[in-house]
Design a binder for these strands. Structure first.
Length: 587
RNA sequence: GUGCUUGUAGCUCAGUUGGAUAGAGCAGUGGCCUUCUAAGCCACGUGUCCGGGGUUCGAAUCCCUGCAGGCACGCCA
């Protein structure tokens, strides 16, 4: 289904063409002067230069050519050469009715037949999720849902960090605490216990402890390094211990992500890519891409158009060990083999941009990915506190994600209880849903690439442009629909031509849905959806306030209203679904 | 030092890809609940769009330049 703005543009383009001008001049945009018109076309002013003619005259000719049109209720030519347009009410209603019957609210199937891998989340094993992980999870989840909605076959991969020095540190620390464990007995050949020798909370305490110790004590650091190497070489006992660490961690991570309503299709980890490394390195050497420089094995990734120095991509350190870039390349290799993706998207802190340009270029140069595979990087900014510095707890420590969610959920719960008489059990559930909307909307309404301020007070106050405001709007609609369903002699809701101005505004807002969603997908910009549903919610609330729906006596009119708010609900719910949260029935 | 990026109302942020008088929210003031949820609606005020040049009918938006902040710049992830 064509976008409304395109239909209007085509109509204007026809006018330009018939008047003897370039049809490309017919581009229609939403009016920036709602007091004057609803849509506008500024092509006549661009044409003035091209055709050396007064813009006003051109605009007049075009308007005359179009004359009476079903699409427009009014075409007005103004001062320098603006063509001001008002949309026909019947046409608008027809468009919306068709849209409500369409799949995807009339969006094009822009991802059809394409496979996309999205790499987001990126937690590390044995470390609790903290606020730094929040953005990747929230933004990645939203992009995943948006792309999937648009027809892409999307594979979301959490890409766990499970292979670095951190593992050696933990193993060594466990040894110091419980040296008697069988995992450290080199001569042991039997099966290892099924139960892990630690809980998740112990694990979370072990890592920072070991990390601090390694900084102070070079002997311990050396042992941890050795343990890492042994693990990577396949030492049985270490491998078994590592399995425990992994399992304990992953089940905890799953619980946390579930609370965020973030789900991954794949729980791949760095270690999964390791088997691909030897052959990959060999191929790079053979292909003449990799060479030795300052003791390390590197691949040049400079390009002539570079305005800055792009250092070579390091494949092996001078001690022969692999590193982050090696694993990332091997992961791409694995993805290519398993999924043959058309696009691979990384939702990662923007500070890693240089790393990924190196990896992308190296992957392309060495043929790890096909030339047509799109490698995309969506870098997000830092989540700051009110002071503009990276978000911390009051004590200055790292804020755990769980704590943050709990705090906000608690604040929401209190708000629900003080406001309305909702049963306590329901209030608990509702609080979770509303709090999630506050957190996610608060994040996603900012441009991903920019740093943003996470202000707990603001996010829990729920006034104005917030997730809860959107939910509240949906709840209002649900409430009316409930009432309507109990009315006698009600009719099938069908949206009708608008009569009041606030009704028309709401309808025009609805008609933008596909345009906004497609743009959000193509630009990977969830904040555009936020902005849109905020406008849409405003439109609905205005309409709500001025129109008494249940009390309306004209039943046909009433059914028209029901059709209108029903479609509004569909659009709002679709959009918040794409952002990654849902609306409760009451709040 | 080099490169990237950001700079818009007191605060937090949009700005339809060059259009008319730059917009929202919060904060402030004043109205609106016997009628579909007041987490709402309505009204009022706020700007050297960081500074300076340029491009053109027209610039917050494009180009140059200066200032300020953030970030990245070979064996961490």
């Amino acid at each position: 289904m064509k976008k409304l703005i395109d239909l209007l543009t085509e109509e204007m383009a026809k006018g330009f063409e018939q008047a003897g001008y370039d049809p490309a001049l017919g581009k229609v945009t939403l009016s920036n002067r709602p007091d004057l018109c609803e849509y506008q076309c500024n092509g006549a002013m661009a044409a003035a230069k091209q055709y050396k003619k007064a813009p006003f005259a051109i605009a007049q000719e075009v308007a005359d050519q179009i004359g009476e049109s079903r699409l427009f209720s009014e075409i007005q030519v103004v001062k320098p050469g603006f063509i001001n347009l008002k949309i026909g009410t019947a046409f608008l209603a027809d468009y919306l009715n068709q849209m409500s019957r369409e799949e995807r609210l009339g969006c094009e199937n822009i991802g059809q037949g394409q496979v996309m891998v999205i790499d987001y989340g990126g937690p590390n094993v044995a470390k609790p999720l903290h606020v730094g992980h929040l953005r990747s999870a929230i933004i990645g989840e939203s992009i995943k849902r948006i792309c999937r909605y648009m027809g892409y076959q999307v594979i979301g991969d959490v890409h766990l960090g499970d292979w670095g020095l951190q593992m050696g540190l933990i193993i060594e620390e466990v040894r110091e605490r419980q040296p008697e464990l069988v995992y450290f007995d080199e001569s042991y050949t039997g099966d290892y216990p099924k139960e892990a020798p630690f809980t998740i909370s112990q694990l979370e305490e072990i890592y920072p402890c070991a990390s601090a110790k390694a900084k102070e004590d070079p002997v311990f650091a050396g042992k941890a390094h050795d343990a890492t190497v042994k693990l990577q070489q396949g030492n049985r006992g270490y491998r078994a211990l590592w399995d425990h660490i992994l399992h304990v961690s992953v089940s905890d991570l799953k619980r946390n992500y579930e609370a965020l309503d973030v789900t991954f299709d794949l729980w791949k980890k760095e270690s999964d890519a390791q088997p691909y490394i030897p052959d990959m390195v060999e191929a790079m050497k053979k292909g003449g891409y990799a060479y030795e420089s300052q003791g390390a094995l590197v691949v040049d990734v400079k390009e002539e158009t570079d305005t800055k120095e792009v250092p070579p991509c390091i494949i092996l350190k001078s001690d022969g060990a692999t590193l982050y870039s090696t694993t990332d390349l091997a992961t791409l290799l694995e993805r290519e083999k398993l999924f043959h993706p058309d696009a691979v998207l990384y939702v990662v802190d923007k500070r890693q941009e240089m790393h990924f340009t190196q990896v992308f270029r190296c992957a392309r140069k060495t043929g790890i990915v096909r030339p047509e595979t799109r490698l995309l990087f969506l870098g997000f900014g830092t989540m700051n506190g009110k002071d503009g510095k990276p978000f911390k707890t009051r004590e200055g420590g790292v804020m755990r994600l769980e704590t943050l969610i709990q705090d906000i959920t608690g604040a929401v719960y209190r708000k629900i209880m003080e406001n309305r008489t909702v049963e306590e059990g329901d209030a608990r559930e509702t609080a979770k849903v509303v709090a999630l909307s506050a957190i996610k909307y608060g994040d996603l309404s900012n441009q991903a690439s920019k740093d943003y301020v996470f202000d707990v007070d603001r996010f829990t106050s729920f006034e104005g442009n917030t997730g809860p405001y959107i939910l509240y709007t949906i709840v209002r609609i649900k409430s009316i629909q409930n009432r309507y369903s109990q009315l006698e002699g009600r009719r099938e809701p069908v949206l009708r031509g608008c009569e009041s101005s606030c009704e028309k505004e709401l309808q025009m807002e609805l008609a933008r849905a596909s345009e906004v969603l497609e743009a959000a997908c193509q630009e990977m910009a969830p904040h555009k959806i936020c902005q849109y549903i905020y406008d849409l919610a405003n439109g609905l609330n205005k309409f709500y306030h001025e129109t008494k729906i249940i009390a309306e006596e004209d039943q046909e009119k009433q059914a028209g209203y029901m059709g209108l708010i029903g479609l509004t609900r569909t659009v709002l719910e679709t959009c918040i679904g794409l952002l990654g949260f849902q609306a409760p029935d009451r709040m």
